[in-house]
């Protein structure tokens, strides 16, 4: 039995880089992205094999699912762009500089390329050798085990994530918030995301699944205290529901006021931050929860974070700040996205 699992491990370990190679080598970007998603799913399987179920859940939902969706929507946006270009016959008028084919890059300086490749190979081999050489280090596993009783949760990963290293997670939630902020600062979203009508099947599917997904998200957050799951996994499922709603172009989603969305993005980070400060005010250190109620506090933070993570990831998928209501739009003035089009048009 062990041997069978060993072979399975070996195949899995070989399949990952092979898929990676294939996806980067494939000339078709769409195929590359599909391969990327399947690579993500294989990664999730690997995490299960390596006894990291929390990571597996997050990888399947965020690493494969959501990142893949982001890639695909970006690709579609680019393709739509080039189609529009062709239609308007801009292509013929483009400047010569823009027309340098990728081959010129490929062929440039084969010696330097070979040398760099050699260097990379040497370094990777060196790394591999040193990884094989290293004696097993200490690790913090035992320390986590000792203190687990005081953390307020039974799941080790959640204890590390929300208590022992809660400060990391606080900053990480900020990174997510920052990403949404960055995307919003760049451009404004153009709804609907799909050109065509969603169709009855998708609409029904969304109506069926969305409530269920919200329930599952709640379950994942709840179960995170004792087993695999938690704010990120729950948030990712919420985000998936959001993406489905966006794709199905449900009216409710389009009509969410921008202010509410802002609050949705900010809720998790704000609550986390306030909790940290309250801990200081109560006489402890930053993020030092009162020992008896640590579990409840963690659950509170996780629930708020999950909501915000869900909203944030869905907003990232939408890919821009919500369009302002027409009443506030001043005539003749445009956001950066529209400016950009004007810019591109003005060049030829």
């Amino acid at each position: 039995m062990m041997d069978a699992m060993g072979i399975f491990d070996m195949v899995l370990a070989l399949a990952l880089p092979w898929l990676g190679w294939r996806l980067l080598a494939s000339p078709d970007l769409f195929r590359a992205m599909v391969l990327f998603i399947s690579l993500g799913l294989l990664m999730a399987l690997t995490w299960v094999r390596l006894q990291a179920p929390d990571v597996a859940l997050a990888e399947a939902a965020i690493g494969a699912g959501l990142t893949g969706a982001l890639f695909l929507s970006a690709l579609r946006r680019l393709e739509r762009l080039s189609e529009a270009e062709r239609r308007l016959a801009f292509a013929g008028k483009r400047e010569e500089e823009d027309e340098i084919p990728p081959e010129r890059h490929r062929r440039a300086k084969p010696v330097a390329y070979g040398l760099a490749l050699l260097l990379l190979a040497v370094f990777v081999l060196l790394l591999a050798w040193s990884l094989a050489q290293t004696p097993a280090g200490g690790g913090l596993g035992p320390a986590v085990g000792e203190q687990l009783g005081q953390s307020g949760v039974r799941s080790e990963v959640t204890a590390v994530l929300l208590n022992f290293r809660g400060y990391d997670t606080l900053l990480e939630v900020m990174v997510l918030f920052l990403a949404a902020l960055g995307v919003w600062s760049l451009t404004r979203v153009r709804l609907p995301l799909q050109d065509e009508e969603p169709g009855p099947v998708l609409a029904t599917l969304v109506r069926l699944l969305a409530p269920l997904m919200i329930m599952v998200a709640g379950y994942l957050v709840w179960i995170g205290g004792s087993r695999a799951g938690g704010a990120f996994q729950g948030g990712a499922v919420l985000a998936a529901a959001g993406v489905l709603l966006l794709l199905a172009n449900v009216t409710v989603v389009r009509q969410i006021p921008a202010a509410l969305l802002r609050w949705g993005l900010a809720l998790g980070p704000l609550l986390f931050l306030l909790t940290a400060v309250v801990c200081v005010a109560a006489g402890g250190n930053l993020l030092e929860y009162p020992p008896q109620r640590a579990g409840a506090w963690i659950l509170l933070i996780e629930s708020a974070s999950a909501v915000s993570i869900g909203v944030t990831l869905a907003a990232l998928y939408a890919g821009g700040r919500p369009p302002e209501p027409p009443a506030q739009d001043r005539g003749g003035e445009q956001g950066p996205g529209r400016d950009a089009d004007a810019d591109a048009g003005g060049r030829q």
Binding site: R165, Y167, D168, L171, E172, M174, V175, L178, A179, L181, G182, S185, L186, P336, D339, A340, D343
Partner: peptide, 28 residues
């Protein structure tokens, strides 16, 4: 060290967004 990684990411991502803020093609 790992916490510093997260702060580095915050710094980097914010710096990139700020760079692109001008909206000019070259800046983007």
């Amino acid at each position: 060290l790992f916490n510093i990684y997260v702060t580095l990411e915050i710094t980097g991502l914010a710096a990139v967004s700020l760079t692109a803020l001008s909206g000019k093609p070259a800046a983007r």
